[in-house]
Write a protein that binds this DNA or RNA. Sequence first.
DNA 1: GTAGTGTTGTTGCGTCCTCAAGTATACCGA
DNA 2: TCGGTATACTTGAGGACGCAACAACACTAC
Lengths: 171, 171
Amino acid sequence: MISQLNSAAPEALTAFVRLANAHAAMQRAFNQELQAAGGITVTDFEVLRRLAEAEGGGMRRIDLAHAVGITASGMTRLLDGLECSGLVMKADCTEDHRVTYAVITDTGRRVLGSAARTHLTSLRALFAERFTEDELAQLVGLLGRLPGAEEASACSSILQQSVAGVTPATS
Amino acid sequence: MISQLNSAAPEALTAFVRLANAHAAMQRAFNQELQAAGGITVTDFEVLRRLAEAEGGGMRRIDLAHAVGITASGMTRLLDGLECSGLVMKADCTEDHRVTYAVITDTGRRVLGSAARTHLTSLRALFAERFTEDELAQLVGLLGRLPGAEEASACSSILQQSVAGVTPATS
DNA sequence: GTAGTGTTGTTGCGTCCTCAAGTATACCGA
DNA sequence: TCGGTATACTTGAGGACGCAACAACACTAC
């Protein structure tokens, strides 16, 4: 009776389970590594990385949330932590008073840089051990079709228009 | 300076980020769906599914934890909840008094069955919309090489030896 | 038997994140 | 100009999960 479970969605279930388990395992491993390297989490790293890559080192908090796959409220708390540690700061938007920018600080760039050295090395090693370049490209392509996998590309163009109106905050 | 980030691990980072974002999006969507369908989470579903597939409907808690990618302590609390709801029960192992089995109940099978109808349908649809069968098989193959993605296969053979010594618990 | 070591499971405590609700601002049609 | 609606962000409450520490049991070697 339950064997009907598998006939209903055989490969799709396997794909989802493997994706979830791989995610959990990698997340745990990288979190420990990053915690040791710079006292940050994987999500912190992603946030800092995206800010560092953005023009002016700043992004709207909501775009940042979409980009890293957490909710707006999660982003508020995450940035509270990073701001407390001096890795990011706030910047008001003169054009739309609803929005606040998150801007990476010099300290933030330093921490990101040092975390990146170890993190990216082991990330690269993990994939290089298991995939050829072609296979990795295939994997990236396939993953890109899943819901929520993209998000990132649309934000930077929006940012380019409005980042001019950013005022570095004093607080 | 930060552009070195990408040259250090270009595709690997993209793969990891896409995997994480896809996981977050799917997890959220399926959790809401399952919550509505049977008041359970994605992890609950996986636990029930694995128990239902196991011989005798039971597995060692530790194997279950490995299989679904959470820690032993996470599994203790998860099973506390499922036991409270009457979906699983405990069973002692007469051969090794350290281990406790988790066994799915009839109620558990009913809840699993009804949750599976909606969940597997949308899971199947999600993948069918985006991938051909070949592509899905490719994806499953590639994901299977990632750390933590497997785990499942080794446990059932162990189970077959010791499940004979299971005593349904009264509590 | 008995000490040393490994494994299973539980518990205390903390973290990260979500949902729901609330506030402040922007935009739009009458 | 004035509601009505949408968006950005914050806050309160709670859930899911990890780590570290611990107790109970098993296995090994002496």
